[in-house]
Design a protein around this nucleic acid. Structure first.
Lengths: 201, 201
DNA sequence: CGCTGGTGTAAGCAGCTGCTTACAACGCTA
DNA sequence: TAGCGTTGTAAGCAGCTGCTTACACCAGCG
């Protein structure tokens, strides 16, 4: 009789790789739910079902654990989406509820930027790629600024929906939000670069 | 020689009202710079130049101190600014970050929403008032949603400027940003409520 | 003068944080 | 079976947090 290999497959009772993976998943979820600072190493270890000392054995520090979570998330969608569809795709991704297997990296970013120094570095890298792609949409010389403004809207909408949970934005239908936002953003891309001669603001 | 009544006026050496005010100002600045959680009561008391026990004597708790900061700063501008100027006023306030006497409530807001549960209660009410004021700008039935989207943009711009510090947004001139944003937001207020083909205003 | 009450301070509380250490349990190999 | 490195755990560290307590100071008043 086998002692107690729980159920099927080659499940070992002492499996370093599996424990590491469970810690990584628990950290990913807790960072996304509460943000980096509010997710404690004790909570992460508890959700993974292991002792917190293992977290430091496998990852060294909480900061390195975050780095690994972020590195694992990646930015594949960004690289596989043509620029003219990028804003709407990202917006709809932001508007759809977090699916169980979805990429939660953006949530981690969103919840962790309250204090700049910890996660903002990683955000800068991601934002740089978005900026480059979106800047090409406007022929104006200040295309990068317009891209920044569009990204700022994206971030703000995510903040209001997932963190502040303000109604009616939080519960609005993605299509309704998309229609309003895309219409205004279209104006953002196409507005004349300088002031329309003597236009009174 | 007089002992040390500092300088002019009726400055008392033990002035409860003045101490309270200094604590309030120190808290407002530190909350705006670091966010609610990262600004400790010891830091606030130190910046005010008093003992931290006074903070609890005058305000009861850190949480109530935040409530008073928000109530004092944000609502004043909200009530003295007509709705049609509110968005631009708030946007310009967000774009000029460190004016000495400026209203920093929005900075407090955006730095403190990372962790929802602590500061959210005091800040949600402020957002509610902004939403009500801005919702009146659009005659459409989804005016509240449009107001949420405008506030999301405001927050996102502040986030990108002060926290992420992304260029060219962080260093852009307020006038240039205002022109682009206000132009697009005007479209947000006036876009037809349903599909562009349906009810054509 | 002594008394009283408002103002300010130093010290300390329990609880939490990230992180470390000493040690037990396990399972592979000889 | 005996040895031994790997995997896991309990306990504890220093440092920080919001908050409290005990007490010194100072001004006004009898």
């Amino acid at each position: 009789m086998a002692p107690a290999p729980s159920d099927s497959a080659g499940e070992r009772r002492r499996d370093a790789a599996a424990t590491r993976k469970r810690l990584l998943e628990a950290a990913r979820d807790l960072f996304a739910e509460r943000g980096y600072e509010a997710a404690t190493v004790r909570d992460i270890a508890a959700r993974a079902g292991v002792n917190q000392a293992l977290l430091f054995r496998y990852f060294g520090s909480k900061r390195k654990l975050l780095a690994e979570v972020v590195a694992q998330g990646g930015l594949e969608r960004l690289r596989t989406t043509p620029p003219e569809q990028l804003f709407e795709t990202a917006l709809r991704s932001m508007l759809s509820q977090s699916a169980p297997g979805a990429d939660r990296t953006l949530e981690v970013y969103l919840r962790s930027i309250g204090r700049g120094d910890e996660a903002a570095g990683a955000l800068l890298g991601l934002g740089q790629e978005y900026q480059s792609a979106l800047a090409s949409l406007s022929g104006a010389e200040d295309g990068a600024l317009r891209a920044d403004l569009a990204m700022a809207w994206l971030l703000g909408i995510g903040l209001m929906r997932t963190v502040v949970a303000r109604e009616p934005l939080a519960g609005a239908e993605p299509d309704a939000v998309c229609r309003l936002v895309l219409d205004a953003v279209d104006r953002l891309w196409t507005a004349p670069p300088r002031g329309p001669d003597g236009a009174g603001l």
